[in-house]
């Protein structure tokens, strides 16, 4: 079976409650294989919580979900082998070098040493890292760090890549380069699930969902969404959808 025919993510009525607070409220959506799926929403709308459930970092209170064909309730260990995750915060080891970080994560994902070496060389040339490969990660500029985090998240060629606000605080040129990295991963067959606050980036996604107060209020291609709301930019679409939000930080 071609992997692109299969749904990468399928979620039905997924809910997470923290006490009386419902962070994620019955969300339902599918992500096709090979798709770039944008997961939008204001701060505090429940994006990160939803993503954490998909990655097996937190158990849903209610609902069903499959990631890479595995049940999120029962097979989180399997899911973890098939996904890559890049956190909102830079989260590599600051006191290791670029190559050491890559080796560490290659080891964590159980890659063979010879495979890991080839993959690391490939990723480093893709990042245009030359001498910097032996630099201590803590000393790199933020944009470089983010690109490095991305590469580390893809080191084991995961089926699905989860990116949580990957370009926060990054300059426009680096952001552009970042999206080129995302596209080349998709060309290699990965599915990308990305959250962002930059509406120009939202335009790069195949499909978008917009979360408001824990619920998905809109889900379509960027083009259809603009048509539906009769506006010219995603910025305007987002503003119209998010207008009714009662939760904010």
């Amino acid at each position: 079976m071609d992997r692109n025919d299969r749904l990468a993510i399928s979620v039905k009525g997924l809910t997470k409650r923290f006490g009386a607070f419902t962070a994620v409220d019955h969300i339902t959506f599918d992500v096709a294989g090979g798709e770039i799926f944008g997961f939008l929403g204001a701060n505090g709308a429940g994006k990160t919580t939803a993503m954490r459930m998909l990655c097996g970092l937190s158990f849903p209170t209610e609902g069903k979900g499959w990631v890479a064909g595995f049940d999120i309730m029962k097979q989180s260990e399997q899911i973890k082998k098939h996904i890559g995750y890049m956190s909102q915060r830079f989260s590599l080891y600051d006191d290791l070098t670029v190559v050491e970080n890559m080796r560490l994560f290659a080891g964590i994902y159980g890659m063979k040493t010879s495979d890991a070496k080839l993959r690391i060389d490939e990723l480093l040339s893709q990042l245009h890292f030359g001498q910097e490969r032996h630099a201590i990660v803590g000393s790199l500029p933020l944009g470089w760090k983010q690109k490095l985090s991305f590469s580390v998240a893809t080191i084991h060629r995961p089926e699905i890549l989860f990116l949580d606000e990957p370009t926060g605080g990054v300059d426009p040129i680096t952001r552009r380069q970042f999206w080129e990295l995302i596209y080349s991963s998709v060309n290699e067959g990965m599915t990308v699930f990305v959250t962002t606050h930059y509406m120009d980036e939202a335009e790069y996604c195949n499909r978008l969902s917009v979360m408001v107060d824990g619920q998905i209020k809109a889900l379509n291609t960027p083009k259809e969404l603009k048509l539906q709301y009769g506006v010219d930019t995603m910025d305007e679409v987002f503003r119209r959808i998010a207008r009714g939000a009662t939760r904010s930080e």
């Binding site: 990655c55 097996g56 970092l57 260990e77 973890k80 082998k81 996904i83 995750y85 956190s87 915060r89 830079f90 989260s91 590599l92 080891y93 600051d94 994560f105 964590i108 994902y109 159980g110």
Partner: peptide
């Protein structure tokens, strides 16, 4: 604190 724990927890390592 640095967030590396989260990355480790998303990995297949128990």
């Amino acid at each position: 604190e640095t967030g590396t724990m989260e990355v480790l927890l998303v990995s297949p390592v128990r």
